[in-house]
C-alpha cells in the first residue's frame, strides 16, 4: 500500500513539478491573485480599522490584531509549507519543489518580522513593555532566525543541489520549533495570552470582531499565494533561462 501511494504521489509530483506546466499556470493565476488579495485585504483591514468595535480594555490599540494574528499565522504556515517542499524536492528530486522552498524563505521571514514588530508595538500600550523574554515571543524570534539561517545557508552554497539538501535539513530540524510556538502559551506561564482562533472552539469575541479578522486572514493568505507564485516564477526565469520553451513564452 505504501508503495502504491508513493508511486501515485511520484506521478502527480512529476506532472505538477514540470516548470513549463507551472509557468503557464502561475502566469494565468498571478493577476487574479493580485486582484483578489488586494481587494480582500482592503476590505478586511478597513473593516477592522474603522468599523469593528474597540476592545473594552485596550481601546483602539486592539485593532493591531488585524495584522498581527494573520502575519503570525502565516509566519508559521509558510514554514510548514517550506519544509514539505524541501522533503518533496529531496525525496522525489523535483526542482520546482526546491524553487518553491527557496521562494518561501524570504516571505516567511518578512511575515514573521511583521508579527514580531506589530507584537512589540502592541505590547507597549497593553502590557507596558516592548519586549519580554517570554516563551511565545522567544520561540517566535527563533522562527525568524531559522528563516534567516536558511536564507544565509542557501546563499553560502554555490552548488544548487547541495544547497537544496542543506537548507532542507535545516528546515526539517527547525520544524520542532512550531509546536513549541503553538503550545508555548499553554505549557508555560507566559505574558502572551492564548490563541485567538482555536480549531473546534468558538472564538472568545463577538462576530463583529472576529469576522474582519477572518477576512484579513484570508487576504493575507491570498497575498502570500500571489507572492510565492510570483517569486517561484522568477526562479524559473532564472534557472531555465536557456531553455527553448521559456524563450518562446517570454518573447510571445
Amino acid at each position: 500500500m505504501f508503495n502504491s501511494l508513493f508511486k501515485y504521489l511520484s506521478r502527480r509530483f512529476h506532472q505538477w513539478g514540470s516548470p513549463k506546466y507551472f509557468y503557464e499556470y502561475a502566469s494565468r493565476w498571478l493577476p487574479w491573485l493580485a486582484f483578489f488579495s488586494t481587494m480582500i485585504l482592503m476590505f478586511g483591514l478597513v473593516w477592522g480599522l474603522a468599523f469593528a468595535p474597540p476592545d473594552y480594555q485596550q481601546g483602539d490599540s486592539f485593532r493591531i490584531i488585524y495584522i498581527h494574528v494573520p502575519a503570525a499565522s502565516l509566519g508559521m504556515s509558510i514554514y510548514v509549507f517550506m519544509a514539505i517542499a524541501s522533503v518533496v524536492s529531496w525525496v522525489w528530486k523535483i526542482k520546482l519543489a526546491d524553487m518553491l522552498a527557496k521562494s518561501c524563505a524570504p516571505l516567511g521571514a518578512v511575515f514573521t518580522a511583521i508579527a514580531l514588530i506589530t507584537g512589540a508595538i502592541w505590547g507597549k500600550p497593553t502590557w507596558g513593555t516592548w519586549w519580554e523574554w517570554d516563551a511565545r515571543l522567544t520561540s517566535m524570534l527563533i522562527l525568524f532566525f531559522l528563516y534567516m539561517g536558511i536564507i544565509a545557508l542557501r546563499s553560502a552554497i554555490n552548488q544548487r543541489e547541495i544547497a537544496a539538501q542543506a537548507t532542507g535539513v535545516l528546515a526539517l530540524v527547525g520544524l520542532i520549533n512550531l509546536p513549541i510556538i503553538k503550545y508555548s502559551v499553554d505549557w508555560w506561564n507566559t505574558l502572551h495570552q492564548s490563541a485567538t482562533f482555536k480549531l473546534l472552539e468558538k472564538p472568545a469575541m463577538p462576530p463583529e470582531m472576529w469576522l474582519p479578522l477572518l477576512i484579513s486572514l484570508l487576504g493575507f493568505y491570498c497575498l502570500f499565494a500571489w507572492l510565492v507564485l510570483f517569486y517561484t516564477r522568477n526562479e524559473i526565469l532564472e534557472r531555465e533561462a536557456k531553455s527553448q520553451w521559456l524563450r518562446a513564452q517570454v518573447l510571445k
Partner: peptide, 11 residues
Amino acid sequence: MGGHGFYVWLS
C-alpha cells in the same frame, strides 16, 4: 485612535 494612534498607525 483613542490616543493609540501612534501604535496603530506605526504597525
